[in-house]
């Protein structure tokens, strides 16, 4: 068997697993009912990278969610993917103990020290390397495999498809990539823009551009979006205002005003599914634990259909899938992100 690039197939799993987000029990049920293979959730504290008010799971809800998912044969993964700090270290180890005790199918961890705790204390617990671990090469991924028996790594949204393939060929670790959702233009786990402006960052607090720092002000010159006082964008009367994530604002370089870092667009890699399948990607992740159950249901349904079609060899994306996903997207525009070289 040959492949489109003339290289032999990687021989890894042909069936791509669909990994979907849930910020609460209704979203988890929506993901399960619409065909997710795995659902990932976080506990209601700063041990996970979507530490937003009203989001995430207390223990009783986590138990209910595990029961519901496991009855359908869906796996549940616990994201413990912020970086523990010395004074509160036990909160992170307790989260790992909780995952083992409640029967989560894997933990998603970024911090090497916490991985060491997990593998020593719960050797049966499956560890996935979080995207927040910033592992962008097989050398980095193999580090986590060698020392902590990491079984799967989630790749930062940094590599081109050819680079993803190169990683897969050189590691025994399963590779999970982002398929859809909000797009971090920075390497995950290596961005302190949010704490520079607001004091809260993904690494230390589990938050980026937090809502409590956002102020909207209608001025004569337009609608201003500020983050802790810093002007992130200004919208004219006929422009749609977007949430002021600080890397997606308009700034000035010299006399030019433009989206200097990234436009408010979503990642959508649906059209790359046949390629992702060919190069041996093990799982596709949908971003969006902060999104509604209706969103999770709709996106999961489309991706389930697309993955099933891909597995049957009828992979051409259908226009109605793309249309449905487009309606779900931030800024209602899509990008292939770093998978597509010119984006860089």
């Amino acid at each position: 068997m040959t492949t489109t690039n003339g290289l032999p197939p990687t021989g890894k799993s042909a069936r791509i697993e669909l990994v979907c987000p849930a910020g609460n029990l209704p979203s988890l049920r929506a993901a399960v009912d619409n065909g997710a293979d795995s659902v990932y959730i976080g506990l209601r504290d700063n041990t996970n990278a979507r530490n937003f008010g009203g989001l995430n799971f207390e223990l009783p809800a986590a138990r209910d969610g595990l029961d519901y998912a496991h009855r359908s044969g869906t796996k549940v993964l616990l994201a413990i993917n912020t970086y523990p700090q010395p004074a509160t270290w036990q909160r992170w180890t307790r989260a790992v103990d909780t995952a083992a005790g409640l029967g989560f199918d894997a933990v998603i961890i970024a911090d090497a020290g916490l991985m060491r705790y997990a593998v020593r204390t719960h050797p049966q617990l499956r560890i996935h390397l979080s995207v927040q671990g910033s592992a962008t090469s097989y050398e980095a991924i193999n580090f986590y495999h060698r020392h902590f028996n990491v079984r799967r790594a989630v790749l930062p949204r940094v590599l081109s498809l050819a680079q993803v393939e190169q990683v897969i060929r050189n590691t025994p670790v399963e590779i999970e990539v982002f398929g859809f959702g909000s797009l971090c233009v920075m390497v995950e786990g290596r961005c302190a823009l949010s704490s520079y402006v607001t004091g809260e960052s993904p690494n230390m607090t589990g938050a980026c551009s937090p809502a409590k720092a956002v102020r909207w002000e209608q001025k004569a010159s337009g609608l201003e979006a500020r983050l802790n006082g810093v002007l992130i964008d200004r919208y004219g009367a006929n422009e749609n205002a977007a949430y002021p994530t600080l890397c997606k604002g308009r700034f000035k370089a010299g006399d030019d005003v433009y989206y200097a870092i990234e436009e408010p667009a979503s990642l959508n890699a649906l059209e790359l599914l046949p390629e992702l399948d060919r190069i041996g990607v093990a799982a596709v992740k949908i971003e969006g634990r902060q999104r509604s159950p209706a969103y999770v249901a709709a996106v999961t349904r489309v991706w389930r259909q697309a993955l099933d079609a891909c597995a049957q060899g009828t992979a051409a994306p259908q226009p109605r899938w793309s249309e449905e996903l487009r309606r779900m997207s931030e800024g209602q525009s899509h990008t292939l992100g770093a998978y597509h070289r010119p984006w860089k």
């Binding site: 970086y83 911090d111 090497a112 020290g113 060491r116 910033s134 580090f143 230390m204």
Partner: peptide, 27 residues
């Protein structure tokens, strides 16, 4: 980055740079 750590580990003493995400004594 951790890829560099993987290459350097055990070979020679090295320095953990500011981008390695060392936030606690366990790491």
């Amino acid at each position: 980055d951790m890829g560099a750590v993987n290459v350097l580990a055990g070979a020679a003493p090295f320095i953990a740079g500011p981008h390695l995400n060392v936030y606690n004594p366990h790491t």
